[in-house]
Each structure stands twice: as C-alpha cells, then as structure tokens.
Design a protein around this nucleic acid. Sequence first.
DNA 1: CATGAATGAGATTTCATTCAT
DNA 2: AATGAATGAAATCTCATTCAT
Lengths: 209, 209, 209, 209
Amino acid sequence: MPKKTFYNLSEEKRNIIIETAIDEFASDSFKNASISKIAERAGIAKGSLYQYFIDKKDLYKHIIEISGNKKLEYLTDCIARIEGLKLFELIRELYKQGILFTIENPKLASITNNFLKETDTRFKEEILGTNMEKSNQFFEMLIEKSKQKGEVKNEIDTKVGAYIITHLNTAIVDQVLNHMEFSEILLNQEELLDKVDKMLFILESGFNS
Amino acid sequence: MPKKTFYNLSEEKRNIIIETAIDEFASDSFKNASISKIAERAGIAKGSLYQYFIDKKDLYKHIIEISGNKKLEYLTDCIARIEGLKLFELIRELYKQGILFTIENPKLASITNNFLKETDTRFKEEILGTNMEKSNQFFEMLIEKSKQKGEVKNEIDTKVGAYIITHLNTAIVDQVLNHMEFSEILLNQEELLDKVDKMLFILESGFNS
Amino acid sequence: MPKKTFYNLSEEKRNIIIETAIDEFASDSFKNASISKIAERAGIAKGSLYQYFIDKKDLYKHIIEISGNKKLEYLTDCIARIEGLKLFELIRELYKQGILFTIENPKLASITNNFLKETDTRFKEEILGTNMEKSNQFFEMLIEKSKQKGEVKNEIDTKVGAYIITHLNTAIVDQVLNHMEFSEILLNQEELLDKVDKMLFILESGFNS
Amino acid sequence: MPKKTFYNLSEEKRNIIIETAIDEFASDSFKNASISKIAERAGIAKGSLYQYFIDKKDLYKHIIEISGNKKLEYLTDCIARIEGLKLFELIRELYKQGILFTIENPKLASITNNFLKETDTRFKEEILGTNMEKSNQFFEMLIEKSKQKGEVKNEIDTKVGAYIITHLNTAIVDQVLNHMEFSEILLNQEELLDKVDKMLFILESGFNS
DNA sequence: CATGAATGAGATTTCATTCAT
DNA sequence: AATGAATGAAATCTCATTCAT
C-alpha cells in the first residue's frame, strides 16, 4: 500500500514507476530485485521511492496486488457465467483465461508465480494479508455445488479436488512462462489449449459421476 | 563434489558441516544462504570451508546430491517391485515414500523442493548435470506400459499424464513442508496418507479404463 | 570514467579522493593497491567509492588518464615548436619536460611508469583503449622527417631508433623516481639535466650524419 | 637461502620444487604468485615448503639467485675473451648471449625481468643483498678501458654510457619475452640479432671516436 | 516533495603461515 | 621430517535505507 504521496503523482509518472518495478521484479526474485535499479531506470531519485512506498516490501506488495487485480479482470467474465456452466466447462474457461493472462502479461504472471513459490510463509502472509487460499476456496465451493447437482461423484473429497485443480493451474502457467523464455514464444496457443484439454479430459473422468 | 580435504576430516566434523549447511540452505534459497553464517554456526573458519569446497555452488551441489541419494533410498524398494504392481499401486507407494522422506528429512526435502522451483535454468543444469526431467520420463514410461497392459485408457496423453503425476507429487511434498513449519508437525501421517488416497482415487478414475 | 555522481561532489571532496587514490596507486601496483585503504584514508565509506566509480579498475583508469593529461600539459609547448627544432633539440626538450613532470608530480609519474611496466597486455589495452605505442610512433615520425632533412643518417633503422629513444626516456624517469625515493630529492635538477645532455650527446653522435 | 633441510632432500625432489616455483613465479609477480599452488603442483605438502624455506620471500630469493647464476653461465665465455675484443664486439656478444639465455630459459628471464621492474626498492635490496648495480659497474669498467685504448671518445660520460647499455639490454630481453608470449616464438633469432645490430650500429657511432 | 550522496553491514573469496600430529 | 587442516585478516563489491538540503 503506497503512501498518499504516490497518488499525488501524475498518472504518467505513477505508470512509469509501476512498469519499471514490474520489469525488475519479473526478472528477479524479491530478494535479488534492486530498488536502485528501479529508481535509476524509472528516472527518479532513489529517495523518492521511499517517499512513495515504505520500503521494498511495500512496493512489492503493491505490484502483487496489481497483478491479482489484472488477473481477476480476465476471470470475471467466466465467473459471471458460473451458473450456466458445468464444472469442467468452467474450469476449462478459467484455465484458458489464465493462459491468456499469462501470455498477455507475462511479467505479471511471472512475478505472481515466483511469489507463489516463495518458501518463507511468514513473508507470504505479510504480503497477502490473509487472502491466501482464495483460489482454493473458490474451487471448493464450485465442487460442492457440482456435487449437489450430481455432476461430480460424492466420494470425491472436496478439498483434495480443489487442491488438484489449483495446483495444476499454476503448473500450467509455469510451463507457459518457461516456454516463452525460450522464445518459442507463441508455441501457439492452440497447442497449449490442446494440452489443457488433454489434462482436463483426465481430470474430468476422475471427477465426474 | 567436495575437495579431498573434506573427506580427510573426521566424520564428526564432516557431519557438523553438512548439517549446518543443510540448515542454512533449507531456510533460504541458494542466493540468500550465507557461507559466512554456515562457517560461524559450524564453528569453523570461513577460510576452512573453502578448503573443503571450491565455492558456495560446490557446497550446494553436494547438499543437493546428498538429498537426492537419500530420497532414492526411500524409493528403491518401490521401484524394485515395479513389475508386480499396477500403475496406481506403484504411484501410491511412491507418493507415500516421498511423504515419508519429507517427514523424516524435512530440511533436505525443503532444499530439493526449493531447488526444483528455481527459475534460472542454466543454474539448475549446472548443478544437476543433465538429469533434469528424470522423474517425468520415469512416469511416462510407466504410463506407456500400463496402456499396453490395458490398465490405462489409450485416449490419455502420456506426457500430460506424467506431467500431472509429477506436479502433484511435488505439490504434496510442499504441503507437508508447510504444515510442518507450522509445527502441527505430526499432522499425523495417517491423515496425510488419507489425503493422498483421496487424490489418487480421483486420478485413478481419470486414468483407468 | 567516473559515474556522474562523482562530478556532483564538491571539488574539495573530489580532490581528496583523487589525491588519496594517487597516493595508494603510487605506492603499489594496481593489483596490490587497496580500495579499502583508499576509502579509509579518504575518510569516506567503502560503498561510496562504488557510487563514484564502477570498480577498482575504473578508478585506476581515471587516475591514469589524469596522469596522462597532466604530462601532456608539460609536453604541448615542445610539440608545438616541433617544426622549428632539430631532432635532438626537440628530444632534449621532451626529456627535460618529462623530468620536470616527474619531479613536480612524482606520484603520478610513478603510477604511469608502473603501469607501463605491467606485463598483462590485455589489462593495459583495457585501460588505455588502443593508444598504446603512441610515444613510439611519434618518435618514428620524427626520425623519418629528420632523415628527409638530412639531419639523420639514412642507414639508421627508424623503428629501432624510436625504440631506443622511448626506452631511455622511461629509464630516466625511473631513475629520477628512485633517487627521489631516497629523498636526495632535489639531487638537483641541473645535475639531472647534465646527465640527460651527456646521454643525448652519445645518441646524437650516433644518429647524426 | 634455503634451510639445511632443503639440501637433505633428494636432488630429484629439489628439482621438482625449484621447477614448480619457477613456473609459478614466471607466470605471476611475486605478490600474486601462490605458495599453495607451488606446493600442490610440486606434489608436496604446503607445510613442507616452510620446512625448506623461511617464507615466500626466501624461496623467491633462491629462484632469483638461480636465475642469476644461470645467466652468468651464458656470459662467462664472452667475459673470458674480454681482452681480445673491442668494446662493441663484446657488447654484441653479451646482448646475443642475453637473448640466447632468454630464449632458452624464458621463465627465468621473465622472473628476473619482472623483478628488475619491481618498484619497491627496499624489497629489491632485501632480495639481492647489495649486488644491484653489478651490471652497471661492469660496463663502466669496460668503457673506461676502451677510452684508454682510444676506442671510445673521451668526451663520453662513463656512467651515462654504462647506463644506456644496461637499460637497452633489459629492454631487448623484454621484447623477446613479449614476442614469445604471443607465440611467434621463434620470431627467429636472426631477425632479433638483426635488430640488435641495428641498435648497436647507432650506439657504436655514438661512442666511437 | 524531490533529491541523491552517504552509509555500513554483509556477501564471497583468497592465501601465507602456523602447528598439532 | 612430513603433513595438511586451520586460521583469520584482508580483498572487492552490493544494496536497502537514511537524511540533510
């Protein structure tokens, strides 16, 4: 959460700072990212950054938040259609949008994914507040509903099911990022979606009654 | 690969060094772990560490190797019984042994898991030589065999299947580690194995014909 | 080439740093000179030096450059009069000015001379860019001209001639420095110039037709 | 001056140590040469070196001495013929033998030349005892004799003359070494001797009456 | 608000020398 | 006499953060 001073800046300046920070955090872990480089590349004084943000962590937190919001934009449409879709239709859409988000915002996706892999749990909680596990809870809710509709086997453990779906999602994003790094950049989306379909084919047979 | 000098040390001293290094690398990534701290905590001179190991990377490599070997010990029995078991019986055993390894060697497991999450591919290859992807390939082979036996649906994509199994494996290990950190340490093994069974129940229905 | 930050410092501070660096590099070779000592003696933080210069080499390069410029100041007058003078009149002037430079800037002269003696050619080129050998080429040109004017025997090999003149020049500077070290500091200039005259007397008879 | 213990060693072992030390000192300055590397490459314990020599300097001193003696072997023949030869015939021989020594013992020559370039005069005296300047004095004596014989102009300053001859000698050796480094190794001796002749041609005209 | 110089702790690494065995 | 493990000071370099202007 930036200080007030940050919001007093012109939008243009704010954007430059954010973009530069994203660049830096995307190309390195939190610890190795350098405040000095961000200031330098953004063309502002190092001290200024400390006028806008409490410290490095604070800036990082803000970027993580931005990324979360951006990703949500990609997902809201799907989520709106939650009622009309079957569980795996929805999951397919969500995975698809997640891939789209990753391709169109690779830096943000990379930051988020790196963050998710951080070991230091205390650090993670500090950054996120408490809303870790949001994704998990969302899928739990979905599965529960689907059980009620009879779409999904009752024998399936809801938590475990949600867990699987969540983790495979981040695994996919990871793969997209890795491929992009090697600049087969557009390893074409179709191929990717094909993989997703193959993955979901397996899961679906596993979940469905 | 430590220098000769390392192996000339008393076993006791060698153990102290290894244990301390494991402690340090377990609580921080490679980059953030500190040789200085290791030396200090092990009660030896900083310079001495450089008598035993070429550099930080060399020490890290050694720890990774130790961990790999230790884990292999847990898995060899399963793997020996490869022929007699059905695919998911084997996977269950492998997951189970993986959990056991993690519970009994949480620091090593943590180091390995952190390593697997490293983004820098060049670094990873430097540490491992080339045998990345071994796990994936192993599961691909298993699935292929099971298809031939008719245990697994032919429609399933082998690579994607192996991918799922591998990733859920590391996800489980991660979860074990996280829980242990919060010192519900023995969140009892039974409960965990129960979760694994629930997970495999889903996957099995998904894979089997 | 210092960073901008260096030029933002007060002249006084800049001078202190430069003087201290000169002291250090004059009393030791590049490799053995210590950035830590420079910082300590200049009364600034070690880190600060790295705000002003990229690294040790960068600072060294700057000092070498300063020295080169200073020496050039001593020589420009002579060089301007190049046309009016006979070869050995000019050489005498150049040697003389070189001695003057050395006496008035013994530390700079020492640094330069040490640098010229460095064995590592790659290092030298890195520091100088490419203009090594400038002195040699200058004398070659002079000799060539003098041959045309009939002042110098045609049988003389131009390159070898230039080589002799260049090397005796640095030899003289060396001697001046050595004597100064033994603090017969002013072994008076006259005596020195007398030696130069004696040296040139020999060379002149050797060169002239 | 090695300790007695050194001379108790088998000649073979002594040779290995000396050769290795020569290798190391030839490829680096005194300060940067590494005792550890010498011990390692010679296949002896580091501690042993300290049984044979007081310290690094002591070993270095010994090597310098060896080099001096070796070079003397190349020169004694010339020197023996001192009476029969004219000044520049003798100088030519001495330069020639110096080049031969350098070509056949490049490492020793390199060590010696680097040593001569050392700035730290106290260090130099410590190593050499007092016999610096020996070469200079030798040439002074020669010149004096030649003056008496009427071969050399009386106007020439003996000291300055000797100085020139000495310095050009080391300059030549330096050039040989540099060329060898660039592995035009045998830039053929003839070519070199041709250069020497050209150099001496100049000097001779300068000296002779 | 903006600046950017200053800091200083801490990182990795090197190496001559000592000393117990 | 031989060994080689141990030492520890010193080297270069990095960087988040502070603070005076």
